[in-house]
Design a protein around this nucleic acid. Structure first.
Length: 456
RNA sequence: GUGGAUGUAGCUCAGCUGGUUAGAGCACUAGAUUGUGGUUCUAGGGGUCGUGGGUUCGAGCCCCAUCCUCCACCCCA
């Protein structure tokens, strides 16, 4: 006997949970469709040559790798094996891995199918991804991402559309106040240029990204630890003084970036995006420029966004950004893209926690046909088929156990009605449809059973 | 990958300073009620106390290791 167990970070879902999760997926999917995105599918497994080095060093550590098939040890010389150096052995025994996100596979897909696609290519993809991270709340090793991306256009109208998508979807999900934080990587690059630490850009980005969490002192400490000089830290501290409305923030930043062409380009892009948004009326999204927003993934080059819930201790529930060179690594330059992703698992956790999931029918079955025993069972079974053919969900109880139990079955499955059609009813040509909640009994004849059911 | 907390029935938990056959509530099954349930009453099934070692006359309780979950880092949806 094997004790049943789940691999770390993996989860099962009960039927009611799947219904609830599908509610979220359906809202996202139909919204994507309405904006003109089309679905694609890609394999769960990709060659590691495609996945590696796209996510930064940390990301690569979190890739689930799949062992080669067959006698995979034959191809390694015993010397390498002796060294026990996993960095050398891993590529020799594993050449495939589980996808880490849906964006890098998309880049690969676009390059491979470039002649079959319509550009700008708007695609959505709702599927599982895997990360070998240590699990904790809101963090799983297997989870869904709900991506929408536009490939092949530099137009910032799409960046603005991404924000409309955040607003539209999260509004439909009835999420409470949320903030869309927006920044532009070129601004961060410009600051690095203006303050002369482009060589330590990555350290800078990681440090300021934690501002929300560890505060100004924490960021300063971290920068100091990474070898930033006092003067540079002092310069960076100016970032923390950028306050006020979005336009005030932009003005302040223009001063800081006066001598940086790249930085000014970032500001300009940001202003264009905000200008597009100014022409719209958002449901409830609050747009906040946040120059400490950085995003860890290496591939972002321009606009970046992240959605957080106000006053709620949870990481971002959606995020995204513009990447201009993602396909370049696959030999296809000049293919800019922008996209977003909803973290459906986190959204589900939040909606559960805040009790914002609507009551939904746990079953799509409308009526349970009670089983009163041998003499009426065949009749009941024929009714079952008639109801199905009328496109109404129905089930028959499989045996003539006591009625109380049959009622409970219906109740637990969320079936709203039961049909009472036993020997007496069949003989009298009168059935009863009973509402399981109210107890009300609606009489009907064999002839009008279907129409009565359909009208309920 | 680093550090910390936890783990007793399907679920929520109790179990004294280590001492006979490990308990409760809910859930489940059966009966009271052979065709109209969700109330009540009665009876019943279910645990190698996460797993593997160790200490002890004796371990759910103490020690070590390991796994899961949770928390903080790293990083991220």
């Amino acid at each position: 006997m094997v004790k049943p167990s789940l691999a770390r970070g993996m989860r099962d879902f009960l039927p009611t949970q799947v219904y609830e999760r599908n509610y979220i997926f359906n809202i996202i999917r139909t919204t994507y469709e309405r904006y003109g995105f089309q679905p694609i599918e890609t394999p769960v497994l990709e060659n590691l040559s495609v996945l590696s080095e796209k996510y930064g060093e940390e990301g690569d550590k979190l890739l689930f790798k799949v062992l080669n098939s067959g006698e995979y040890l034959n191809d390694i010389d015993s010397e390498t094996l002796q060294l026990k150096n996993y960095k050398k052995i891993t590529p020799a025994i594993s050449e495939k891995g589980l996808r880490y996100d849906l964006t890098v596979p998309l880049a690969r897909y676009v390059v491979m199918h470039r002649n079959e696609l319509v550009f700008p290519f708007k695609r959505y993809h709702i599927d599982k991804v895997w990360r070998a991270d240590r699990p904790q709340k809101g963090r799983y090793r297997e989870f869904y991402q709900c991506d929408a991306d536009i490939i092949g256009s530099p137009s910032l109208i799409y960046d603005a559309e991404c924000i409309l998508l955040f607003d539209d979807v999260l509004h439909q999900l009835k999420l409470p106040d949320f903030i869309v934080k927006v920044n532009n990587r070129k601004i961060l690059g410009g600051l690095a240029e203006a303050w002369d630490f482009s060589d330590q850009f990555k350290d800078f980005v990681i440090a300021i990204d934690k501002w929300d969490k560890i505060g100004e002192d924490g960021v300063i400490r971290e920068l100091g630890g990474k070898g930033f000089s006092e003067a540079k830290i002092h310069a960076i501290q100016q970032l923390f003084r950028v306050k006020g409305s979005n336009s005030e923030k932009i003005n302040t930043l223009k001063g800081l970036l006066a001598n940086s062409p790249i930085g000014n380009k970032g500001i300009e892009e940001l202003e264009i995006v905000l200008n597009y948004l100014a022409a719209t009326t958002l449901y409830q999204a609050e747009i906040e420029l946040d120059f400490s927003l950085a995003r860890g993934l290496d591939y972002y080059t321009s606009t970046i966004f992240e959605v957080v819930i106000k006053n709620y201790a949870m990481g971002s529930i959606a995020s995204g950004g513009r990447y201009d060179e993602l396909t370049a690594g696959f030999g296809m330059p000049d293919m800019p893209g922008v996209g977003i992703s909803f973290g459906a698992e986190r959204i589900y956790d939040v909606l559960c926690d805040l009790k914002l999931l609507p009551e939904m029918a746990a079953s799509s079955v409308k009526i349970l046909l009670l089983n009163f025993g041998e003499k009426s069972e065949l009749h009941t079974f024929s009714l079952l088929q008639k109801i199905h053919r009328s496109n109404i969900g129905a089930e028959v109880y499989p045996n003539a156990t006591k009625i109380a139990k049959q009622y409970q079955y219906a109740e637990k499955k969320g079936i709203p009605y039961v049909l009472i059609a036993g020997e007496n009813e069949i003989e009298n040509n009168q059935y009863f449809i009973k509402n399981i909640i109210t107890g009300e009994q609606i009489p009907c004849t064999p002839e009008n059973l279907i129409s009565t059911l359909a009208s309920l």
